[in-house]
Simulated scan of single mutants.
Amino acid sequence: MASDDSFHRPTRFAPHKFDAIVGGADPAQLSRMAHDTASALLARVREDPDPAVVARLVSYTDEHGIDAIAELWSHAAAKSLPGALWRVYLLRTLIRQDPQGVSLGYQRGAEVSHTIDQVVAGAPAPAGPDEVRELADRILQGVFTGDFAVALDRAAAFCRVVAAGFASIADDADASDSVHPDRPGELTRRALRLTQLADELHACARLWRRDALD
């Protein structure tokens, strides 16, 4: 799985890259563009959810990279429509970058978590690398074709289960291990980031249900 820094901010952009998007627009214009593109994309696809179009959107970052999505939406507020879309794409990318590590975290989390999160997430048991990759695709597909709030809640639940798993594995790890002395700290930081991501996605789901997610 990517390092903590790459999880928090997968791509750093030089100022000229943003200038090139809209001719050096100010932050307010960039924010408006993020909201407009997110709203237009979601409305268009949900109005006519052509399976081929949805499939291309789900796999978009496989061909074009996460940078293309980041340029549009990564700087949007967490509790916003572009912010929600960015976080779902980010979660899918993180899963595909390290399906083995994420699946181990999910399996441990399902064992130690005493909530219904694993039920909400909808992953099979056991959830191996192939299963978590497939789940990530199903969640993103649900953003465009199903109940948007449910898709966000599924993503949030998945994050919470994996976070619980990483925290548990970190507790078991030997901090004095000379081979991987930083592993417990890395896992703890990943757990915290996933918990934050879950909170943001869940907040977006609540706002969407109130028709207040702009």
Rank of each mutant, 00 (worst) to 15 (best):
S39L: 14
A78P: 04
F7V: 08
Q141F: 07
R183Q: 08
T93F: 10
R189K: 11
V143S: 04
A123S: 09
R210S: 10
A84D: 05
L201F: 07
A14H: 13
A38S: 06
G142H: 09
R210F: 10
V179W: 15
E131V: 09
D5E: 14
G128P: 01
D4G: 14
M1W: 07
D211W: 04
L152V: 05
R160D: 06
T145I: 12
R160E: 08
Q97L: 13
P51M: 01
S168V: 08
S3Q: 06
A170S: 07
S103R: 09
M33C: 05
P10C: 04
D4A: 11
A78I: 01
I169R: 11
R92Y: 04
T11Y: 08
A43D: 10
A55P: 05
I116A: 15
D211K: 14
G101T: 06
S6Y: 12
R96M: 07
F148N: 02
H64I: 09
A76R: 02
L72N: 13
V162F: 01
A55K: 11
W208I: 04
I66H: 09
A127K: 08
A68D: 08
P184R: 06
A55S: 11
H114S: 12
R9A: 15
G142N: 03
A28K: 02
S168Y: 11
L213N: 05
A25V: 10
A84M: 02
V54E: 06
A2T: 11
R96T: 05
H8S: 14
F13A: 03
E200W: 07
A173C: 06
Q141L: 03
D5H: 13
G185M: 02
L140D: 01
L91K: 09
L41V: 11
V112E: 06
